[in-house]
Design a protein around this nucleic acid. Sequence first.
RNA 1: UGGGGUGUCGCCAAGCGGCAAGGCACCGGGUUUUGAUCCCGGCAUUCGCAGGUUCGAAUCCUGCCACCCCAGCCA
Length: 556
Amino acid sequence: MYLDMDDAPASNFLQTIISEDLAAGRVSEVVTRFPPEPNGYLHVGHAKSISVNFGLAEANGGRCNLRFDDTNPEKESQEFIESIQEDIRWLGYRWDGEPRYASSYFQQLYDWAEHLVRNGDAYVCDLDADQAREYRGTLTEAGRNSPYRERSVEENLDLLARMKAGEFDEGAKVLRAKIDMASPNMNLRDPILYRIRKVRHHQTGNDWVIYPTYDFAHGQEDAIEGITHSICTLEFEDHRPLYDWLLEHLPVSCRPRQYEFGRLNPSYTVTSKRKLKQLVDQGVVAGWDDPRMPTIAGMRRRGYTPAAIRRFCDMIGTTRSDGVVDVAMLEFAIREDLNENAPRGMCVLNPLKVVLTDYPEDKVEELSAPRHPSRVDLGERVLPFTRELFIDADDFREEANKKYKRLVLGKRVRLRNAWVIEADEVVRDDSGQIVEVRAHTVPGTLGENPADGVKPRGVIQWVSASHGRRAEVRLYDRLFNDEAPDKGDKDFLDHLNPESLRVVEQAWIEPALAQARPEDSYQFEREGYFVADRYDHSTDTPVFNRTIGLRDSWSD
RNA sequence: UGGGGUGUCGCCAAGCGGCAAGGCACCGGGUUUUGAUCCCGGCAUUCGCAGGUUCGAAUCCUGCCACCCCAGCCA
């Protein structure tokens, strides 16, 4: 079903580092990790990170852990923990062992916090958030030492224990590393290690009222798990000195190294969790898994395949430069996969009745057609042909120039996988609207060109009016009509594409398509790739989502 | 005016002192019962800019410019 996944082994700066580490014996096995915070759904940007972390481990015979970085219970939930696991599995990756949780290391982390305090490397600070900001200085001015910076080890130990015991209110005290308030790197100006949060944690319940910050947790989690290469995105680069400082000042048994790569920014989309949440909350889309969302769940429902997403990640590469990737590349990846693997079928979105006047009323020809033009292994399907058919209204014109390769009055067209027909006359309703085309078949044209040498102008899809089935078809398009909807001071909501969804309630599909199971992909010939909706589709009420249209180079 | 990064074709991206890979997009042409696919061809005398080193530089040095990130008790 999927494309060949191990084409060219990805070569990038991370692989180069790993190869050198392996060759020099600095590491004996590659261990990476994918460390999402369970505070939202995974999106295409995470897919790249997953591909990088799992891919590197896989390519080097190593392991990759899944670790929930659940250090901030306020924003996290079990729902996200589950959706994240489902998405990673769906993408086709398997983490090593059981999922890990930062929260399962809380005691160890606390012990290490005491260790820092004992060595005079951390202190309890009573400054509130506003004061702390003031003391921190600015980008161009050094900060000032907190008045609580020189507390004794004994006092700090006592205060820390009391913080843990719940004796202080939220925000009343924090534990900070004692580094350098004048550092040009803001992250080294006595960063906060622990804060008081009297909220229930989804994994540890009410065991803790103090929670470690990302900085105090991440490197140590990596050390505990024996991570060799801790790969994250560029914005964490400034945190690396702190990451290293903590590991140097703690009795950890191994030294993971942090490396950063540029995050993925696809054009015509937004990927910030805040903005995606806004789209959901404001009802712009139907939910986190709306087919227009760049979430993994959304792309899945849209009909994107794991193979296409992985292929896309390989195509864009992994570097330290941050740019915008043309979504056309993602679209190429899914077309490439589906062109190769999706069975073909016929669907008429905008029906116009055609009556074949020479064709007997009750005759039904059970034609057979290949499911795929080149994949003979996919077999054939039965195509009932009858006197009354539907074609797409866009595929008929009373008159047209020679560039129009469809049905024209008095001219011929090939009905895909069936007869060549010739249009004779149109039937109109009271308002003058064409409601029917009367035509006749050209004899001997089943699988053959017309004997008289007059070739059809083109090929169009059709569905038997008596044997076809009704279906709802959801035509999705880009959610935004601006290449960079959230760049600069733009409001991304001002650039929504009003035509990102058009629902065709009464499309006609050939009978074989009604047999689709949810999440089966097809190419509706001449239209595009469509997937049977994961939730709403059934044989009784077929519902298809347009994944992506066919490449179209035609212009009038 | 602090620190950390990045700058190679419209986009992504190889390249690491020897004379600019590849993919996407785009433009031609061919095949075709999908205006699809497939096939063939085109597409950077030039690597942010300016100097310098060298027989030779996208690759080394110097200076400059542009853009991104950092002042959450978020990650």
